[in-house]
Design a protein around this nucleic acid. Structure first.
Ligand code: MN
Ligand code: MN
Ligand code: MN
Ligand code: MN
Lengths: 218, 218
DNA sequence: TAATAAAGTTAGGTAAGCCAAACAAATATT
DNA sequence: AATATTTGTTTGGCTTACCTAACTTTATTA
């Protein structure tokens, strides 16, 4: 049974490796800045996690999760996303409010709790941000997703997920009328800075390239 | 914002004073044995809680909660009982399983969470053990309750709450057919050891005085 | 009241999780 | 290849929440 802190490190590693597909390995500094602690602190913790066979790590080398570490991390992600779904579906939390509370709830230790919660929510497949919820066996159904930035002019697409889940990003998205399943029409694209004119619910907005890259659509 | 540990001390004090009506004050040893830590540890914590104006305490003297401490404790009890109700009502937890998980859930920090949870549960007034749930303002509706041990032979009464909420006690209660709202008929009482013959759901059992003292009935 | 028992306190110590500052290794740049 | 920069590590120190063992005060009982 791991501590809150240990679980947070595993989840952070999972996000920086397996999930942010890129490279599968990460480093002390990256983890430190992701978790908002110092590299020294990360270093201490890595020794403990290595001892428990959750990460593989040699001094001055890159860090990866072991299979055991990966399995554990997926379970934390599962708990997090189920709680987000509960807050959103049952307790009227908004898109941008769920994350903070789920960060706490994900650490509650009870197998039965999570299984019953999943059942109560009727086995949801995605969380309020459109991210897939791993099943009890740790299986994650990834769907290939394009960002809004890749869609050609004139197309109509549907928002299925968001990359950034910070409150400020989500609040901005809500402000221009965007929610999960919103229909988006691409009206025009300014080559100059990559900004895009879109239509959502009959209202037009111009959004930056950076913003568009954080919206996943089909 | 208090730590898990600090919250646990406040709740323990509340149980040992205000709730277990008796004396309104308690001591280092009583707290230590209730929380399963050493008196030395309690002593350390008491100094911290005094600093924060949550308990009033002078060296070698008895300990009481301040009004501030009492208010905080009631809020923890409220959270605990709302979560127990949620687990029991919505997630199919049994009588004896709710407490352990609620011990963890009660520490989640989010005002909105508790208010929405209460709303979602439709403002319940008692938890699965029959104990009153404080409202958002900290008001607790106590009902005067007798124990089964005080009921005369021949009477019929209804179980409204249990004093002991340990899994072993609750499992035994379930085994002889008892649940909240069960109807109990007192058939006979053995003066010798105080044990009582009762009928629940048409089946007879003989229970000890100690057991009877842990059942509240009307 | 004096001795004994019980209750409470203090001193010194541990592990977890964090930090800053000094240092070492690896990588990038010239 | 030499140097500079980035990345990672070590050391010593801090706080919280625990502990044991020795001690002091208060309460009980002879
Ligand atoms: Mn989240
Ligand atoms: Mn999410
Ligand atoms: Mn309980
Ligand atoms: Mn209860």
């Amino acid at each position: 049974m791991l501590s809150h802190a240990e679980e947070n490190y595993l989840k952070a590693m999972f996000h920086l490796t397996t999930m942010a597909e890129s490279s599968n390995e990460t480093g002390t500094n990256a983890l430190a800045s992701y978790l908002d602690v110092t590299p020294a602190t990360v270093n201490d913790m890595l020794k403990k996690l290595k001892e428990k066979d959750l990460v593989s790590y040699e001094k001055y080398r890159k860090i990866t999760l072991t299979q055991k570490g990966k399995d554990y991390a997926v379970d934390i992600v599962r708990r997090h996303r189920l709680w987000e779904t509960f807050l959103y579906e049952k307790l009227d939390f908004s898109w941008d409010e769920v994350h903070e509370v789920a960060e706490q709830l994900e650490h509650i230790k009870s197998k039965k709790l999570i299984e019953q919660l999943e059942k109560f929510l009727d086995y949801p497949v995605t969380d309020p941000h459109g991210d897939p919820i791993p099943n009890a066996k740790g299986k994650i159904k990834y769907q290939k997703r394009k960002t809004l930035a890749e869609i050609p002019i004139g197309s109509i697409c549907k928002l299925v997920a968001v990359k950034d889940t910070s409150a400020s990003f989500l609040q901005y998205a809500m402000k221009i009328g965007l929610g999960l399943s919103s229909t988006i029409e691409i009206l025009n694209r300014h080559e100059f800075d990559g900004s895009i004119e879109i239509k959502v619910n009959k209202s037009r907005s111009t959004v930056s390239l950076k913003f568009a890259e954080n919206l996943f659509v089909v």
